[in-house]
Design a protein around this nucleic acid. Structure first.
Lengths: 219, 219
DNA sequence: ACAAGTCTGTTGTTTTTACAACAAAAGGAG
DNA sequence: CTCCTTTTGTTGTAAAAACAACAGACTTGT
């Protein structure tokens, strides 16, 4: 656990909290470390969760398979990112998605109740963490709206352009790497993989962009 | 303003706060009342907002028109509901959507900075409001994921079924009224109106549901 | 009550997407 | 290195959605 203090220091949740304070908060929040093999479920849809998690190693996908077997990827959790913020609130209902390890992963679990119930004596920085959590949920909220914006586009091409240009903007660079395989990108944008692959190649042939695997260049 | 204390008492933000305390908080948060005619912009995409708002009268739509003129409705704000929570955080960037009065509307504006900076002396219930705000953002987050879930469905029919069955579940009743005209529902689900209208009628003919205007019955 | 405008359902046509199937390329395990 | 699996691009066909255009029902304002 101690080895992840450096990582935690750079996360949104512990932003501005010092090493020694993080160490004491790990106890206060009853932090636990769990590992998952590729393909393992971290959470299942329908579960009632009372844990906030930060990813220490690997990669997670927040996704959902519907009745017809179509998969929809809602979000990717990368190292240092969080999952479960939206379920910190009491009466937040059951989880709407599966969370699955896309690679062998290590996840830090925090006790939710310990976060909201400020322990004034032990952790002076508890309130700062609560505020960080607040801003984190706020930011995830805006990201979800952005995703809705991509998905709202009518054609596969428009969805791709919307997503890719946002990634370019986010990286401040027209060269960037996406965290998806083709199938995953299709599941993220909710379109058919082969149709999307086709569209990507057309766009490349038209000189709109270049790509190699999951490295893209917008032109 | 005083006439809306009863309304505010029943909102998520002021849940658990007494009348007299709400009255004093209205000053503390520099509450201001503004009215909008049908079609007026309450906020515009790209704006930097520093106000939290609660709708007192009318109806608002959170929407966005893309390059090709396709409109996407992200959310409806009904009386007592809130907009702007996700932009309370500093550095939350510019607004991603337009907010438009769908009917003549009255909106209460609160100063965001006053909400986050707890004034310990004046308002004992300030911290409760902050917590309420926290839970509200959290809930909106989950609602956005639900919307993504509807939109992720591949066919118009599946999108409709996903949306309508959630509404039925939310109302605890297979009879319910939706807050949309056909065009708006189409914009909300990001599909073509006529195709959707067609699909609705097919579903009715197959005995899956009944409808009259925006009243629906699932069978 | 009337006229103008909006909303809804309906139809036919065009375009796009989904689906299925396969081959080539890349990556991994033994 | 070789075999096996996964990923990606490609194609043809079937299905679905978008688009356009219009008529009737319903609203709204005068």
């Amino acid at each position: 656990m101690e080895k992840y203090v450096e990582l935690l220091k750079r996360t949104q949740l512990f932003s501005g909290v010092k090493d020694t304070e993080i160490t004491s908060m790990l106890h206060c929040l009853q932090a636990k470390l769990l590992t998952f093999k590729k393909g393992d479920y971290v959470f299942r849809e329908g579960e009632h969760i009372d844990k906030l998690t930060i990813l220490a190693e690997g990669k997670l996908l927040v996704q959902r398979d519907d009745f017809w077997g179509n998969r929809s990827i809602v979000n990717v959790i990368r190292i240092g990112e969080m999952f479960g913020e939206a379920y910190v609130a009491p009466e937040s209902g059951s989880l709407l998605n599966d969370v699955i390890a896309e690679e062998d992963s290590t996840v830090i679990f925090f006790d939710v109740r310990r976060i909201l119930t400020v322990c004034s004596t032990a952790c002076r920085f508890h309130s700062m963490v609560v505020q960080n959590l607040f801003f984190a949920i706020s930011e995830k909220n805006r990201k979800l709206v952005q995703k809705i914006d991509h998905m709202s586009k009518r054609s596969t091409r428009a969805k791709l352009l919307s997503y890719l240009s946002e990634e370019a903007k986010r990286h401040n660079n027209n060269r960037f790497t996406i965290p998806f395989t083709r199938q995953q990108l299709a599941d993220f944008l909710c379109v058919d993989r082969s149709a999307m692959s086709n569209e990507l190649c057309k766009m490349r042939d038209e000189g709109l962009l270049q790509f190699d695997k999951n490295k893209f260049i917008l032109l």
